[in-house]
Amino acid sequence: MRFLLTREQADFARSLDAMLTAADTPAVVRAWENGDHGPGLTVWRRVAEAGVFALAVPETYDGMGLLPVELVLAFRELGRHGVPGPYVETAAAAVLLAGSPDLAKEWLPRIAAGEAVVTLAEEGGYALDADAAEGVFVLGDRVTGASAGSAGELRVSADTARRLYAAERAGDALPVSPESLTAARELAMLLTAAQALGVGDTLLAQTVAYVKQRTQFGTPIGAFQAVKHRLADTLVGLEFARPLLYGAALSMSGPDIAAAKVTAGEASYAAARTALQLHGAIGYTQELDLSLWLRKARPLRDAWGTPGVCRARVLEG
């Protein structure tokens, strides 16, 4: 028993953090929400070069096998930096397609290398960033796939960096196993949780920085107990979500993943409410970069497993 990140794991997260810090992600997000995918795809390739997609791809297809703890670390960093794009969906698609040798051969080496951007969604839902993807996979009682150019009409998400397109079944059923379908959904749930935690971590950090420098009544507002206690509760929420994520990554059991998802999603959303409230009116503006994370927290809380769905899953055992 050593429930701590290894030095290698911590170094991996730090190197991603450094790379994404240098990438000026707020500018990338603002381009992405306007349909300019160029800067975002540059980041995509760097993330792939850092080995992130390979963590979801078996070694046979140029990957490193499924390494859930490392994936959780990577997706927390993507959330912390507010990186736009169908990262969760591409990683989950890798697990889905690994269940079929032909599809695996066709897609997985290119996913691992960052050459293929793909998305996937539940039938009747919305495919994230289908306009940026060359493959759209739709999950239902059978799995179907469509290629690029058929994205359809853009629906704008409450998080404008999430570009949504109706997910409808297209073409013949793909030969993927029920096990790989379940594994794909569970990985999407886990990595959305990791991303949500990263979003919450950034919202808390930005708000702590703000209340230290914002002065009212002649004193930094961070000295007031009402402000301190709200931030303390926000930290409690995030710190107790964190071990659930790592624990779920180690066990990869459905109830553990659902527990991590509901807890990280709620903690992140609570962090967003705190961040908005403590920034006051300036926090309610599109202009402030904080908005890039504020708008993300709610969709991530509900994507790939709403709190209600996750709680029911926990009780199923």
Partner: peptide, 26 residues
């Protein structure tokens, strides 16, 4: 039902948080 689930989740979170601290002690 949701609050029963939260009780199970919270206990697990507290257990894992504690294993983290125990690992740090160790």
């Amino acid at each position: 039902r949701d609050r029963v689930a939260d009780a199970l989740i919270g206990a697990r979170a507290y257990q894992l948080f504690t294993w983290t601290n125990a690992s740090r002690f160790a």
